[in-house]
Amino acid sequence: MKISVEYIAKLARLAVSGEEGEIFGSQLNSILTYMEKLNELDTKDIEPTSHVLSLNNVMRDDVLKKSISGEDALINAPDHTDKFYRVPKIIE
């Protein structure tokens, strides 16, 4: 499997220079090659799993909990008004 660093960088909104692209590309490909080793295993009789824990049905009741204040919610945002997160204009 060959990976396109350019495409992945675009999806992740990362600016990757040509030089970096080559380094990451070969690193990612060696990871993938390593992972491909797993395909050598015979998994015919093994049930697929989507989670490492052998847990299921962890749920909560529909009970209200206190939210944080508007002020606290916005405090870490790079930009905000007194009530809203503020972001560059979204072209619709």
Binding site: T81, K83, F84, Y85, R86, V87, K89, I90
Partner: peptide
């Protein structure tokens, strides 16, 4: 999107 022309606001 209303209001300030250069920004959008998120709730």
């Amino acid at each position: 999107h209303e209001g300030d022309g250069n920004y959008s606001f998120v709730d």
